[in-house]
Amino acid sequence: MTFNDNASVGRSTARRRGGGAAIAGGGIAGIGAIAVLLFQLFTGTDLSGLLGGGGGAVGGGEETEVAQCETGADANQRDDCRLAAGQLALDQYWGETLEGYTPPQLIIVDGATGTQCGTASNQTGPFYCPPEQTVYVDPTFFGLLRQQFDATAGPLAQLYVLAHEYGHHVQNITGIMADHPDRGTGPDSDAVRLELQADCFAGAWVGNMTEQEDENGVPFLEAPTQQQIADAINAAQSVGDDHIQQESGGVVNPESFTHGSSEQRQRWFETGYRSGPEACETFGIPGGSL
């Protein structure tokens, strides 16, 4: 995935916010810690206390614009600008796809900040906070995945993560979340169905991403290469419940699943990519067939 260099991305409403020091890579050691990070990738559950060591102070922090993020060339060079530019394309897609769509807020986290859903930092990973209708992402998280886990976390994989969180926003504003409040765990649980549907929604956007344009009619994004698609699929596989349990040295226990297996996450991403959001009805599938 590459942004068109001359695409205008300066209209993003993404904000930077931070109230504490970033959690440096050296403060997280061992595959168990990485498993915690990956578990949190799409949950918004702060398990940083299990990691030990160096979290900075947490606070609301001052909000500022994402500086020097004006063109697609800027987005191709920096993770924070890439996410801000991705916001424009995602909002345009869902605005055209979903009647009554209202955009979420996107906060680029510097270090750590408090939210109604817990601490946002590179320890918690990217997450969506439903009561705030806000997506939180600390871009340094992608560096941790590159350095300490078998995930490339390239540009399209980063946008897949963002698009997944946007999928949760769609579930929130359409009432899907409210319709399934008792999620539990297990391979057929509503929690797994919500996560797989968000993967599917992300794939639907990736399949359509070259259709979004700036105010001058310039497409935001170039068509993804097969390698970039593979990178996004790799990200989906890396956060499968079975893969996380294996890498943490444990036994794979489907009854504890909250997000789905690596195979399921890949398959539902590809379903959305091929067939669009209409194919993402994970709640209509019988148990054992997800």
Rank of each mutant, 00 (worst) to 15 (best):
S121V: 01
G72F: 10
F283K: 06
R183T: 15
Q133F: 11
P181C: 04
P224L: 05
L51N: 06
H180L: 01
A236Q: 09
V206M: 13
A73P: 03
A7I: 02
G72E: 01
A232F: 04
A22T: 14
S238I: 09
E278F: 07
F201Y: 15
A24C: 07
H168P: 09
N6I: 08
V135S: 02
D241C: 06
G56H: 06
G118Y: 03
P139I: 00
C117H: 04
D241P: 05
G186A: 09
A85G: 13
Q197D: 07
I107F: 02
G249E: 08
T71K: 02
I233N: 04
G154E: 13
G203T: 12
G203K: 10
A223Q: 14
S8K: 14
A204I: 00
A73M: 07
D242L: 02
A120W: 00
Q40S: 15
G175K: 09
I229M: 15
N4A: 10
L194M: 12
T271P: 03
Q148M: 10
G167V: 08
G18S: 04
D138G: 00
G52D: 08
V206T: 14
I233H: 01
E270T: 12
E63H: 03
G249K: 12
G260T: 02
I34V: 14
Q116G: 05
R16N: 08
A202S: 13
E211C: 01
D214I: 03
L221R: 09
C81Y: 02
W94C: 03
P126E: 02
G55E: 12
T71Q: 06
L196Q: 05
L156H: 12
Y136M: 10
I173V: 15
T210E: 06
V239C: 08
A279V: 01
S289W: 01
D188C: 06
F269S: 03
T102Q: 15
R78T: 05
G217P: 09
F127M: 03
V218F: 05
H243F: 10
I23D: 09
Q92K: 15
A151W: 11
T45C: 04
P277T: 15
S289G: 00
